[in-house]
Computed example of a mutant assay.
Amino acid sequence: MKTLRMLETAVTLLFRAVVGIAFLVLIAAVLVQVVGRLSGASPVWTEELTRFALLYLAAVGAGLSLKSGELVNVDVVCEAFPERIAWTLRLVSALLVAGLGLYLLPMAWRFTTIGNFQTSPALGLKMSYVHFTVFLMLALLAFFAILRVVGMLTGTDNGRPAHLNIDPEE
């Protein structure tokens, strides 16, 4: 179990750094674009880079949001039920997210490989690097959902979002 926690911590730190880098790239590209428009010569590559950075930001952020419980959820519905039913609903939800993510991974990889035959018009980047965001998002959602399921079944996690992680007996 300790190894699993260390893996979760390492993956979380790595992808938090990726979110930070994507956000910095996004900020820099928009800044260059705005300054370019003020000077009358906005580089065409900034729009494309902004889109690509936003895709990575969303793909990685989705997995991290699932981990922290900040991904869009129906907490109001789950928490209206008695604790045992709410716990079961959270478990089923995590199982469905993990199952769907794992099921879609091969198709997302096929989509990623199609990008090897395409390049982006402004940056000349292989589109497989851009298409990879779909695979990455599904992989991270499945990974963090599986961790939640394992945590719930072993009793180390109750499946609640961090902001709702309070003792129901209080």
Rank of each mutant, 00 (worst) to 15 (best):
G159M: 03
I114G: 07
V11C: 14
T113F: 00
R90Q: 13
A58I: 15
D75W: 03
G99H: 01
N158R: 10
E47Y: 13
V97F: 10
H131C: 00
S120Q: 05
F81Y: 15
A98L: 06
R148K: 15
R16S: 08
A139G: 11
P161C: 06
W109Y: 13
M152S: 04
I114W: 06
L147T: 09
I21C: 04
R51Y: 03
V150D: 03
R84A: 15
G40I: 12
V35K: 05
V25R: 00
E170Y: 06
L96N: 11
A139K: 00
M1H: 13
V149Q: 02
E48N: 08
V92D: 04
W45E: 06
F52R: 00
G99T: 06
W45K: 04
L91F: 13
L153K: 02
K67P: 05
A29L: 11
V18P: 07
V130L: 13
V130H: 02
L123D: 01
S68N: 08
A29R: 05
Q118L: 13
L104H: 07
W109R: 11
L71V: 05
M107P: 01
E47I: 10
M1Q: 11
L141Y: 08
P168D: 04
L4I: 10
I85S: 15
P161S: 05
V35M: 00
G99D: 04
A62H: 02
V34L: 10
P82C: 07
S128T: 12
L14I: 14
A10S: 14
L38N: 14
T88Y: 06
I21W: 04
L14E: 02
T113M: 12
G151S: 09
G61V: 08
A62I: 08
E47F: 06
I166H: 04
V134A: 15
W109A: 12
E79Y: 01
N116I: 12
N73H: 14
A10H: 08
F117I: 02
T12Q: 04
E8D: 15
E47D: 15
L13T: 11
G20S: 11
A108R: 09
F52S: 03
R84F: 09
T50E: 03
G99A: 09
L153P: 04
Y129A: 13
A17K: 01
G63K: 01
A94F: 00
W109L: 13
Y129I: 10
L89I: 15
R84G: 11
I85Y: 03
V150T: 08
T113D: 06
L4N: 05
L57P: 12
G20I: 03
F135Q: 12
A53D: 06
I21Q: 07
A41Y: 09
L71Q: 04
T113A: 01
V30L: 09
V76N: 08
H163A: 15
V92Q: 07
T154H: 02
L91M: 14
V74M: 12
I27P: 00
V77A: 14
S39H: 05
D167Q: 05
R90G: 10
L91S: 09
E48K: 07
L102D: 01
G101M: 09
L104W: 09
A86D: 11
L153H: 00
P121V: 13
I146Y: 02
A22I: 04
H131M: 01
G151F: 04
F132C: 00
A59P: 12
E169G: 07
Y129F: 15
T112Q: 09
A59L: 03
Y129G: 11
L140G: 12
A108N: 12
A139S: 12
P43V: 08
P106M: 05
F117K: 07
L64M: 09
N158D: 15
C78F: 13
V77Y: 15
